[in-house]
Design a protein around this nucleic acid. Structure first.
Lengths: 212, 212
DNA sequence: GGTATTCAATACCCATTGGTATTGAATTTG
DNA sequence: CAAATTCAATACCAATGGGTATTGAATACC
Protein backbone atom coordinates (compact mmCIF):
# COMPACT_ATOMS: atom_id res chain seq x y z
CA UNK A 1 0.00 0.00 0.00
CA UNK A 2 1.45 3.21 1.21
CA UNK A 3 4.93 2.25 0.54
CA UNK A 4 7.23 4.12 2.88
CA UNK A 5 8.39 7.21 1.08
CA UNK A 6 12.08 7.27 0.41
CA UNK A 7 13.46 8.23 3.79
CA UNK A 8 13.15 11.97 3.63
CA UNK A 9 16.19 12.35 5.81
CA UNK A 10 19.21 10.12 5.76
CA UNK A 11 19.13 7.57 8.52
CA UNK A 12 22.81 7.77 9.00
CA UNK A 13 23.82 10.68 11.19
CA UNK A 14 25.79 13.25 9.21
CA UNK A 15 29.46 13.22 10.04
CA UNK A 16 29.51 16.84 11.11
CA UNK A 17 26.75 16.24 13.60
CA UNK A 18 28.45 13.17 15.02
CA UNK A 19 31.53 15.24 15.64
CA UNK A 20 29.57 18.11 17.12
CA UNK A 21 27.73 15.84 19.51
CA UNK A 22 30.91 14.04 20.52
CA UNK A 23 32.68 17.31 21.20
CA UNK A 24 29.76 18.60 23.19
CA UNK A 25 29.54 15.42 25.24
CA UNK A 26 33.29 15.43 25.78
CA UNK A 27 33.17 19.01 26.98
CA UNK A 28 30.54 18.13 29.55
CA UNK A 29 32.34 15.03 30.67
CA UNK A 30 35.72 16.77 30.93
CA UNK A 31 34.13 19.58 32.90
CA UNK A 32 32.44 17.22 35.31
CA UNK A 33 35.05 14.54 35.82
CA UNK A 34 38.27 16.00 34.50
CA UNK A 35 40.30 14.72 31.59
CA UNK A 36 41.97 11.75 33.21
CA UNK A 37 38.82 10.49 34.91
CA UNK A 38 36.69 10.77 31.77
CA UNK A 39 36.05 7.53 29.90
CA UNK A 40 35.74 7.56 26.15
CA UNK A 41 32.91 5.10 26.45
CA UNK A 42 30.94 7.45 28.68
CA UNK A 43 31.56 10.36 26.35
CA UNK A 44 30.38 8.34 23.37
CA UNK A 45 27.32 7.09 25.23
CA UNK A 46 26.47 10.62 26.31
CA UNK A 47 26.49 11.64 22.67
CA UNK A 48 24.35 8.65 21.75
CA UNK A 49 27.13 6.65 20.12
CA UNK A 50 29.78 4.11 21.01
CA UNK A 51 33.51 4.23 21.24
CA UNK A 52 33.72 3.34 17.57
CA UNK A 53 32.33 6.73 16.69
CA UNK A 54 35.06 8.39 18.68
CA UNK A 55 37.89 6.59 16.95
CA UNK A 56 36.24 7.02 13.60
CA UNK A 57 36.32 10.80 14.09
CA UNK A 58 39.35 11.43 16.29
CA UNK A 59 42.75 9.90 16.40
CA UNK A 60 43.02 9.67 20.17
CA UNK A 61 41.66 10.92 23.44
CA UNK A 62 44.13 13.77 23.39
CA UNK A 63 42.96 14.84 19.98
CA UNK A 64 39.37 14.85 21.15
CA UNK A 65 40.42 17.09 24.01
CA UNK A 66 42.15 19.34 21.51
CA UNK A 67 38.97 19.50 19.45
CA UNK A 68 37.00 20.55 22.50
CA UNK A 69 39.56 23.21 23.27
CA UNK A 70 39.53 24.53 19.72
CA UNK A 71 35.76 24.51 19.62
CA UNK A 72 35.44 26.50 22.81
CA UNK A 73 38.16 28.91 21.85
CA UNK A 74 36.14 30.27 18.99
CA UNK A 75 33.05 30.96 21.03
CA UNK A 76 34.73 32.02 24.22
CA UNK A 77 36.26 35.27 23.17
CA UNK A 78 34.81 38.37 24.61
CA UNK A 79 31.66 36.78 25.92
CA UNK A 80 31.44 38.93 28.97
CA UNK A 81 34.01 41.65 28.96
CA UNK A 82 32.70 43.45 25.93
CA UNK A 83 29.61 44.35 27.84
CA UNK A 84 31.76 46.55 29.97
CA UNK A 85 31.52 49.16 27.27
CA UNK A 86 27.76 49.16 27.31
CA UNK A 87 27.32 50.67 30.70
CA UNK A 88 27.71 54.27 31.76
CA UNK A 89 29.47 55.90 34.62
CA UNK A 90 32.31 54.45 36.59
CA UNK A 91 30.15 53.09 39.37
CA UNK A 92 27.63 51.70 36.92
CA UNK A 93 30.25 50.12 34.73
CA UNK A 94 31.94 48.45 37.69
CA UNK A 95 28.70 47.33 39.28
CA UNK A 96 27.23 46.08 36.04
CA UNK A 97 30.31 44.15 35.04
CA UNK A 98 30.62 42.73 38.53
CA UNK A 99 27.07 41.44 38.49
CA UNK A 100 27.57 39.83 35.11
CA UNK A 101 30.76 38.07 36.07
CA UNK A 102 29.42 36.95 39.43
CA UNK A 103 26.41 35.45 37.75
CA UNK A 104 28.63 33.71 35.26
CA UNK A 105 30.78 32.19 37.97
CA UNK A 106 28.05 31.03 40.32
CA UNK A 107 25.51 30.06 37.72
CA UNK A 108 27.42 28.44 34.93
CA UNK A 109 28.40 24.88 35.63
CA UNK A 110 30.36 23.99 32.56
CA UNK A 111 32.17 27.03 31.26
CA UNK A 112 34.11 27.82 34.39
CA UNK A 113 34.97 24.26 35.24
CA UNK A 114 36.11 23.59 31.72
CA UNK A 115 38.27 26.68 31.85
CA UNK A 116 39.91 25.44 35.02
CA UNK A 117 40.38 22.03 33.49
CA UNK A 118 42.05 23.60 30.47
CA UNK A 119 44.42 25.55 32.67
CA UNK A 120 45.11 22.51 34.78
CA UNK A 121 46.13 20.48 31.77
CA UNK A 122 48.02 23.30 30.14
CA UNK A 123 50.43 23.24 33.04
CA UNK A 124 51.73 19.86 31.98
CA UNK A 125 50.83 19.44 28.33
CA UNK A 126 52.88 21.62 26.06
CA UNK A 127 50.49 21.22 23.15
CA UNK A 128 47.56 22.31 25.23
CA UNK A 129 49.57 25.28 26.41
CA UNK A 130 50.40 26.20 22.84
CA UNK A 131 46.70 26.44 22.05
CA UNK A 132 45.52 27.94 25.29
CA UNK A 133 48.12 30.67 25.80
CA UNK A 134 47.12 32.70 22.72
CA UNK A 135 43.48 32.32 23.63
CA UNK A 136 44.12 33.68 27.08
CA UNK A 137 46.08 36.55 25.65
CA UNK A 138 43.18 37.42 23.43
CA UNK A 139 40.82 37.35 26.36
CA UNK A 140 43.07 39.66 28.31
CA UNK A 141 43.42 41.91 25.31
CA UNK A 142 39.69 42.19 24.90
CA UNK A 143 39.34 43.05 28.55
CA UNK A 144 42.03 45.68 28.13
CA UNK A 145 40.25 47.22 25.17
CA UNK A 146 37.01 47.36 27.08
CA UNK A 147 38.77 49.06 29.96
CA UNK A 148 40.40 51.54 27.63
CA UNK A 149 37.07 52.32 26.01
CA UNK A 150 35.41 52.99 29.33
CA UNK A 151 38.15 55.17 30.72
CA UNK A 152 38.37 57.13 27.51
CA UNK A 153 34.66 57.72 27.41
CA UNK A 154 34.77 58.89 31.01
CA UNK A 155 37.86 60.95 30.51
CA UNK A 156 39.40 59.22 33.50
CA UNK A 157 43.16 58.84 33.58
CA UNK A 158 43.16 55.23 34.64
CA UNK A 159 46.13 52.94 34.93
CA UNK A 160 47.55 50.98 32.03
CA UNK A 161 44.50 49.28 30.51
CA UNK A 162 46.39 46.13 29.74
CA UNK A 163 47.42 45.82 33.34
CA UNK A 164 43.85 46.32 34.49
CA UNK A 165 42.74 43.75 31.96
CA UNK A 166 45.20 41.26 33.36
CA UNK A 167 44.05 41.99 36.89
CA UNK A 168 40.37 41.61 36.13
CA UNK A 169 40.93 38.48 34.07
CA UNK A 170 43.00 36.80 36.78
CA UNK A 171 40.82 37.99 39.62
CA UNK A 172 37.84 36.49 37.85
CA UNK A 173 39.55 33.14 37.40
CA UNK A 174 40.81 33.18 40.97
CA UNK A 175 37.34 33.90 42.28
CA UNK A 176 35.90 31.11 40.18
CA UNK A 177 38.44 28.70 41.64
CA UNK A 178 37.79 29.89 45.17
CA UNK A 179 34.07 29.55 44.63
CA UNK A 180 34.58 26.00 43.47
CA UNK A 181 36.55 25.17 46.61
CA UNK A 182 34.34 27.01 49.07
CA UNK A 183 30.95 27.84 47.57
CA UNK A 184 29.40 29.07 50.80
CA UNK A 185 32.33 31.15 51.92
CA UNK A 186 32.70 32.77 48.51
CA UNK A 187 29.18 33.26 47.24
CA UNK A 188 27.82 35.42 44.46
CA UNK A 189 27.45 38.42 46.69
CA UNK A 190 31.08 38.39 47.77
CA UNK A 191 32.25 37.82 44.22
CA UNK A 192 30.22 40.74 43.00
CA UNK A 193 31.54 42.97 45.76
CA UNK A 194 35.13 41.95 45.11
CA UNK A 195 34.99 42.72 41.41
CA UNK A 196 33.09 45.95 41.89
CA UNK A 197 35.55 47.18 44.50
CA UNK A 198 38.54 46.29 42.36
CA UNK A 199 37.19 47.92 39.24
CA UNK A 200 36.10 51.03 41.07
CA UNK A 201 39.44 51.42 42.77
CA UNK A 202 41.47 50.77 39.64
CA UNK A 203 39.40 52.87 37.27
CA UNK A 204 38.88 55.79 39.57
CA UNK A 205 41.89 56.04 41.77
CA UNK A 206 45.00 56.04 39.70
CA UNK A 207 46.47 59.51 40.15
CA UNK A 208 50.23 59.27 39.62
CA UNK A 209 51.03 61.88 42.24
CA UNK A 210 48.50 61.11 44.94
CA UNK A 211 45.22 62.95 45.44
CA UNK A 212 45.65 66.69 44.92
CA UNK B 1 87.66 -10.98 66.60
CA UNK B 2 86.17 -7.58 66.56
CA UNK B 3 82.67 -8.64 66.66
CA UNK B 4 80.52 -6.04 64.92
CA UNK B 5 79.23 -3.66 67.55
CA UNK B 6 75.48 -3.74 67.96
CA UNK B 7 74.28 -1.56 65.11
CA UNK B 8 74.39 1.87 66.68
CA UNK B 9 71.34 2.95 64.80
CA UNK B 10 68.46 0.72 63.84
CA UNK B 11 68.78 -0.44 60.28
CA UNK B 12 65.07 -0.36 59.81
CA UNK B 13 63.83 3.08 58.87
CA UNK B 14 61.66 4.55 61.62
CA UNK B 15 58.00 4.54 60.78
CA UNK B 16 57.62 8.28 61.14
CA UNK B 17 60.39 8.89 58.66
CA UNK B 18 58.94 6.45 56.16
CA UNK B 19 55.68 8.34 56.31
CA UNK B 20 57.38 11.73 56.04
CA UNK B 21 59.37 10.68 53.02
CA UNK B 22 56.35 9.13 51.35
CA UNK B 23 54.28 12.26 51.90
CA UNK B 24 57.06 14.45 50.58
CA UNK B 25 57.50 12.29 47.49
CA UNK B 26 53.77 12.19 46.93
CA UNK B 27 53.56 15.96 47.15
CA UNK B 28 56.22 16.33 44.49
CA UNK B 29 54.67 13.72 42.27
CA UNK B 30 51.16 15.14 42.61
CA UNK B 31 52.46 18.62 41.87
CA UNK B 32 54.32 17.49 38.77
CA UNK B 33 51.94 14.98 37.25
CA UNK B 34 48.63 15.56 38.96
CA UNK B 35 46.76 13.12 41.14
CA UNK B 36 45.31 10.85 38.50
CA UNK B 37 48.53 10.58 36.52
CA UNK B 38 50.68 9.83 39.57
CA UNK B 39 51.60 6.18 40.11
CA UNK B 40 51.98 4.84 43.60
CA UNK B 41 55.01 2.92 42.48
CA UNK B 42 56.74 6.09 41.31
CA UNK B 43 55.92 7.85 44.54
CA UNK B 44 57.32 4.97 46.57
CA UNK B 45 60.44 4.77 44.44
CA UNK B 46 60.96 8.50 44.76
CA UNK B 47 60.91 8.09 48.52
CA UNK B 48 63.31 5.16 48.29
CA UNK B 49 60.73 2.45 49.04
CA UNK B 50 58.30 0.21 47.22
CA UNK B 51 54.57 0.12 46.96
CA UNK B 52 54.48 -2.11 50.02
CA UNK B 53 55.59 0.81 52.15
CA UNK B 54 52.71 2.87 50.86
CA UNK B 55 50.07 0.33 51.72
CA UNK B 56 51.71 -0.41 55.02
CA UNK B 57 51.32 3.25 55.98
CA UNK B 58 48.23 4.42 54.12
CA UNK B 59 44.95 2.77 53.39
CA UNK B 60 44.65 3.93 49.81
CA UNK B 61 45.85 6.45 47.26
CA UNK B 62 43.14 8.84 48.32
CA UNK B 63 44.26 8.66 51.91
CA UNK B 64 47.82 9.42 50.88
CA UNK B 65 46.54 12.45 49.05
CA UNK B 66 44.67 13.44 52.17
CA UNK B 67 47.84 13.09 54.20
CA UNK B 68 49.68 15.38 51.80
CA UNK B 69 46.88 17.90 52.03
CA UNK B 70 46.85 17.80 55.81
CA UNK B 71 50.62 18.05 55.97
CA UNK B 72 50.73 21.10 53.76
CA UNK B 73 47.81 22.74 55.51
CA UNK B 74 49.77 23.10 58.69
CA UNK B 75 52.75 24.77 57.13
CA UNK B 76 50.94 26.78 54.53
CA UNK B 77 49.17 29.27 56.70
CA UNK B 78 50.35 32.78 56.51
CA UNK B 79 53.60 32.06 54.77
CA UNK B 80 53.61 35.23 52.78
CA UNK B 81 50.81 37.50 53.77
CA UNK B 82 52.02 38.13 57.26
CA UNK B 83 54.99 39.96 55.90
CA UNK B 84 52.64 42.61 54.71
CA UNK B 85 52.73 44.02 58.21
CA UNK B 86 56.47 44.35 58.23
CA UNK B 87 56.76 47.05 55.67
CA UNK B 88 56.08 50.74 56.01
CA UNK B 89 54.14 53.16 53.96
CA UNK B 90 51.38 52.36 51.52
CA UNK B 91 53.62 52.30 48.49
CA UNK B 92 56.26 50.28 50.27
CA UNK B 93 53.80 47.79 51.66
CA UNK B 94 52.21 47.25 48.27
CA UNK B 95 55.49 47.06 46.41
CA UNK B 96 57.12 44.80 48.98
CA UNK B 97 54.22 42.40 49.13
CA UNK B 98 53.96 42.39 45.36
CA UNK B 99 57.58 41.46 44.97
CA UNK B 100 57.30 38.65 47.48
CA UNK B 101 54.23 37.15 45.88
CA UNK B 102 55.59 37.49 42.37
CA UNK B 103 58.75 35.70 43.39
CA UNK B 104 56.73 32.99 45.02
CA UNK B 105 54.66 32.43 41.90
CA UNK B 106 57.42 32.46 39.33
CA UNK B 107 60.09 30.78 41.41
CA UNK B 108 58.35 28.10 43.37
CA UNK B 109 57.67 25.01 41.38
CA UNK B 110 55.84 22.86 43.88
CA UNK B 111 53.80 25.04 46.18
CA UNK B 112 51.76 26.79 43.55
CA UNK B 113 51.17 23.73 41.41
CA UNK B 114 50.17 21.71 44.40
CA UNK B 115 47.75 24.43 45.40
CA UNK B 116 46.16 24.34 41.97
CA UNK B 117 46.01 20.57 42.11
CA UNK B 118 44.27 20.75 45.47
CA UNK B 119 41.72 23.18 44.10
CA UNK B 120 41.25 21.12 41.00
CA UNK B 121 40.44 18.03 43.01
CA UNK B 122 38.34 19.88 45.55
CA UNK B 123 35.91 20.73 42.79
CA UNK B 124 34.90 17.10 42.47
CA UNK B 125 35.88 15.42 45.71
CA UNK B 126 33.71 16.41 48.61
CA UNK B 127 36.16 15.14 51.18
CA UNK B 128 38.96 17.17 49.73
CA UNK B 129 36.69 20.17 49.72
CA UNK B 130 35.85 19.62 53.36
CA UNK B 131 39.52 19.85 54.24
CA UNK B 132 40.51 22.55 51.82
CA UNK B 133 37.70 25.04 52.33
CA UNK B 134 38.57 25.84 55.97
CA UNK B 135 42.23 26.13 55.05
CA UNK B 136 41.43 28.62 52.33
CA UNK B 137 39.25 30.58 54.73
CA UNK B 138 42.11 30.79 57.15
CA UNK B 139 44.42 32.02 54.45
CA UNK B 140 41.96 34.70 53.46
CA UNK B 141 41.47 35.62 57.09
CA UNK B 142 45.18 36.03 57.64
CA UNK B 143 45.41 38.22 54.58
CA UNK B 144 42.52 40.28 55.91
CA UNK B 145 44.20 40.73 59.25
CA UNK B 146 47.40 41.84 57.59
CA UNK B 147 45.45 44.35 55.53
CA UNK B 148 43.67 45.64 58.59
CA UNK B 149 46.96 46.03 60.45
CA UNK B 150 48.51 48.02 57.65
CA UNK B 151 45.58 50.34 57.12
CA UNK B 152 45.25 50.94 60.82
CA UNK B 153 48.90 51.76 61.17
CA UNK B 154 48.64 54.15 58.27
CA UNK B 155 45.40 55.64 59.45
CA UNK B 156 43.94 55.00 56.02
CA UNK B 157 40.23 54.35 55.79
CA UNK B 158 40.50 51.42 53.45
CA UNK B 159 37.71 49.20 52.26
CA UNK B 160 36.51 46.18 54.20
CA UNK B 161 39.72 44.32 55.02
CA UNK B 162 38.11 40.94 54.52
CA UNK B 163 37.04 41.93 51.05
CA UNK B 164 40.53 43.12 50.22
CA UNK B 165 41.90 39.89 51.64
CA UNK B 166 39.63 37.90 49.36
CA UNK B 167 40.64 40.00 46.39
CA UNK B 168 44.36 39.66 47.00
CA UNK B 169 44.09 35.96 47.72
CA UNK B 170 42.12 35.24 44.55
CA UNK B 171 44.15 37.59 42.39
CA UNK B 172 47.27 35.78 43.52
CA UNK B 173 45.84 32.40 42.65
CA UNK B 174 44.54 33.66 39.35
CA UNK B 175 47.90 35.10 38.45
CA UNK B 176 49.59 31.84 39.38
CA UNK B 177 47.25 29.97 37.07
CA UNK B 178 47.74 32.45 34.26
CA UNK B 179 51.49 32.24 34.69
CA UNK B 180 51.29 28.47 34.42
CA UNK B 181 49.36 28.73 31.17
CA UNK B 182 51.36 31.54 29.60
CA UNK B 183 54.70 32.00 31.35
CA UNK B 184 56.08 34.48 28.84
CA UNK B 185 52.95 36.57 28.55
CA UNK B 186 52.52 36.77 32.30
CA UNK B 187 56.02 37.03 33.72
CA UNK B 188 57.23 38.08 37.14
CA UNK B 189 57.32 41.71 36.21
CA UNK B 190 53.70 41.81 35.14
CA UNK B 191 52.64 39.84 38.19
CA UNK B 192 54.44 42.24 40.46
CA UNK B 193 52.91 45.23 38.71
CA UNK B 194 49.43 43.76 38.88
CA UNK B 195 49.57 43.09 42.60
CA UNK B 196 51.18 46.39 43.40
CA UNK B 197 48.60 48.32 41.39
CA UNK B 198 45.73 46.46 42.99
CA UNK B 199 46.99 46.90 46.52
CA UNK B 200 47.80 50.55 45.99
CA UNK B 201 44.42 51.28 44.52
CA UNK B 202 42.52 49.34 47.15
CA UNK B 203 44.43 50.58 50.15
CA UNK B 204 44.70 54.16 49.10
CA UNK B 205 41.64 55.00 47.16
CA UNK B 206 38.61 54.03 49.14
CA UNK B 207 37.02 57.36 50.03
CA UNK B 208 33.29 56.73 50.41
CA UNK B 209 32.32 60.13 49.07
CA UNK B 210 34.92 60.67 46.39
CA UNK B 211 38.11 62.71 46.74
CA UNK B 212 37.52 65.91 48.67
C1' DG C 1 20.87 -2.86 -9.89
C1' DG C 2 25.15 -3.97 -8.61
C1' DT C 3 29.62 -2.79 -6.84
C1' DA C 4 32.67 0.05 -4.05
C1' DT C 5 33.12 2.83 -0.17
C1' DT C 6 32.13 4.98 4.14
C1' DC C 7 31.73 4.68 9.02
C1' DA C 8 29.89 3.48 13.40
C1' DA C 9 29.10 -0.75 16.01
C1' DT C 10 31.12 -4.86 17.97
C1' DA C 11 34.46 -7.80 19.62
C1' DC C 12 38.78 -8.09 21.11
C1' DC C 13 43.61 -7.05 22.91
C1' DC C 14 46.81 -5.95 26.45
C1' DA C 15 49.43 -2.65 29.17
C1' DT C 16 48.67 -0.33 33.21
C1' DT C 17 47.85 0.08 37.98
C1' DG C 18 45.33 0.15 42.42
C1' DG C 19 44.99 -3.08 45.64
C1' DT C 20 45.88 -7.85 48.23
C1' DA C 21 48.30 -11.92 50.01
C1' DT C 22 52.43 -13.72 51.27
C1' DT C 23 57.12 -13.67 52.71
C1' DG C 24 61.11 -12.92 55.42
C1' DA C 25 64.25 -9.90 57.70
C1' DA C 26 64.48 -6.78 61.50
C1' DT C 27 62.86 -5.70 66.04
C1' DT C 28 60.63 -6.57 70.44
C1' DT C 29 59.24 -9.38 74.20
C1' DG C 30 59.65 -12.86 77.80
C1' DC D 1 67.88 -17.24 73.07
C1' DA D 2 63.51 -18.30 71.32
C1' DA D 3 58.98 -17.00 70.20
C1' DA D 4 56.04 -13.37 68.78
C1' DT D 5 55.43 -9.28 66.25
C1' DT D 6 56.22 -5.54 63.07
C1' DC D 7 56.56 -3.94 58.48
C1' DA D 8 58.33 -3.25 54.00
C1' DA D 9 59.49 -6.11 49.99
C1' DT D 10 57.78 -9.31 46.59
C1' DA D 11 54.63 -11.69 43.96
C1' DC D 12 50.32 -11.73 42.42
C1' DC D 13 45.39 -10.47 41.03
C1' DA D 14 41.47 -8.34 38.71
C1' DA D 15 39.57 -4.54 36.65
C1' DT D 16 39.95 -0.81 33.97
C1' DG D 17 40.17 1.52 29.73
C1' DG D 18 42.75 3.25 25.61
C1' DG D 19 43.40 1.53 21.39
C1' DT D 20 42.81 -1.95 17.19
C1' DA D 21 40.69 -5.22 13.97
C1' DT D 22 36.70 -6.71 12.04
C1' DT D 23 31.96 -6.49 10.64
C1' DG D 24 27.84 -5.08 8.38
C1' DA D 25 24.52 -1.70 7.29
C1' DA D 26 23.96 2.65 4.95
C1' DT D 27 25.42 5.51 1.26
C1' DA D 28 27.74 6.80 -3.03
C1' DC D 29 29.07 5.68 -7.48
C1' DC D 30 28.69 3.69 -12.13
Amino acid sequence: MTEPPPPAVSRRTPRAEVQRRLIEAAAQEFAERGYAESRLEDIAARAGFTKGAVYSNFKSKQELFGAVLADRSDAELGAVMERLTEVDGIEDAAAGAARLVAGEITGDTERGQLGLEFASRARRDEQVRAVLAPLRRSQRQIAAEAIAAVTERLGAAAADPELVGLIVHCLTNGLAMEHAVDPEGVDGERIEAAIAATLTALLGAERPGGNP
